[in-house]
Amino acid sequence: MEINNLKQGFILTNSDLYEVFKCGNSGGMRKSNSTNSLLIISDHTKSLYDDRWEEDTLYYTGMGKAGGQSLKFMQNKTLDESNENGVNIYLFEVFNTGEYIFRGEVKLVDKPFQEEQIDVEDNLRKVWIFPLKIKNVEKDIQLKDLENIIEKRENKIRKLSDEQLIKNIANSRKVSSKRNVETTTYERNQHVVEYAKRRAKGKCELCEEEAPFLTKDKQPYLEVHHIQWLSNDGEDSITNVAALCPNCHRKMHALDLEIYKSKLNEKVKGDLND
């Protein structure tokens, strides 16, 4: 495979990166003199660097795991001078270990600036942040990839001590990150939705409690849930939906337990046979 044949969204392995770009096989910034390129790898599976997107700009953390970073250090210098030195900059993102998703060629769009982050030795230090934009955007990231990395970050953060959690909050940015994501929306049969709500007669079909409140139209507020998810090839039919209170609806999505699915299936079949 040649560099010019890469398409946004292609998934490469670490070996592929070496073969295509003739670069090193480790690190988040990989320079190749033979292909006149610099690979920028934003690895979201690792918690050290605080890379973030705000709209269409990636704020990428420079090289250096311990202590203050230098703008004159190795590939920090290459990236800082990339608008003058002629080196082509290519971005890859990692959401799952070993999968390098090609985002395209990027450009440094503003001057690097400094922020404080925690280093590998758990000390507060100054790092360099590089504002980058993709030259030609063709694809957004998959929603499932973003949800996957959010879950991994939550698991890591859950292990922090109270002291470290407060320390990280004090030194974190106050603006939330933003990403454009590619997602699939299912247009549901509204007749099926209405049927499920009427069948429930104002009670959640899982916990069997009354709806938590009435809508402005004085209707019991229940949410219609597909027992076998549409994303898992479930039918959009009256035999595959249940009207749930918001709490049970979230529980079904968060836990996805067979015991609850079985209960709903039995409830639906029983009502249909009455």
Rank of each mutant, 00 (worst) to 15 (best):
E2I: 06
I3E: 04
Q8E: 15
Q8I: 06
G9M: 04
L12H: 01
L12E: 02
T13E: 00
T13N: 03
E19G: 02
V20N: 01
G24W: 00
S26L: 01
G27I: 03
G27K: 03
N33P: 01
N33G: 04
S34G: 00
T35A: 04
S37V: 02
I40K: 02
I41S: 04
S42Q: 00
H44N: 14
H44V: 04
T45P: 09
K46F: 09
S47P: 02
L48V: 04
Y49R: 09
D50H: 11
W53A: 11
E54P: 00
Y59I: 12
Y59D: 11
Y59R: 11
M63R: 13
M63D: 14
G64Y: 02
G67H: 11
G67E: 10
Q69G: 08
L71W: 03
L71F: 05
K72V: 09
F73H: 14
F73L: 12
F73G: 01
Q75R: 02
K77E: 05
L79V: 08
L79K: 08
E84Y: 11
V87R: 06
I89M: 04
L91D: 01
F92V: 03
F92G: 00
N96W: 03
Y100V: 01
I101C: 05
G104A: 12
E105C: 10
E105L: 09
V106A: 10
K111I: 08
P112W: 09
F113C: 06
F113H: 15
F113S: 06
Q114S: 14
E115M: 15
D122R: 15
D122F: 12
N123E: 12
N123K: 15
F130M: 05
P131G: 13
N136M: 06
N136Q: 11
E138V: 12
I141V: 15
K144N: 15
D145Q: 10
D145C: 07
E147D: 14
E151Q: 13
K152I: 11
K156G: 07
S161L: 08
S161R: 10
L165W: 14
I166V: 12
A170I: 10
S172I: 03
R173T: 15
K178E: 12
R179W: 13
T184K: 15
T185I: 15
Y186H: 15
N189Q: 11
Q190T: 13
V193L: 12
A196Y: 06
A196H: 07
K197E: 08
R199S: 04
R199A: 05
K201R: 13
K203T: 08
C204R: 08
L206S: 14
E210C: 07
A211C: 10
F213N: 03
F213W: 08
L214D: 13
K216R: 12
K216P: 05
D217K: 13
K218I: 10
K218N: 15
Q219P: 02
Q219K: 15
P220D: 09
V224Q: 08
H225D: 09
H225R: 08
H226L: 06
H226Y: 07
H226T: 05
S231H: 05
N232W: 05
N232A: 12
G234S: 09
E235V: 00
D236F: 05
D236G: 06
I238N: 04
T239Q: 12
N240H: 06
A242C: 07
P246V: 10
P246E: 08
R250P: 05
R250V: 11
M252W: 04
H253W: 07
D256T: 02
K261I: 14
K261Y: 13
L264R: 09
E266Y: 09
E266N: 14
G270M: 08
L272M: 13
L272E: 07
N273Q: 13
N273M: 12
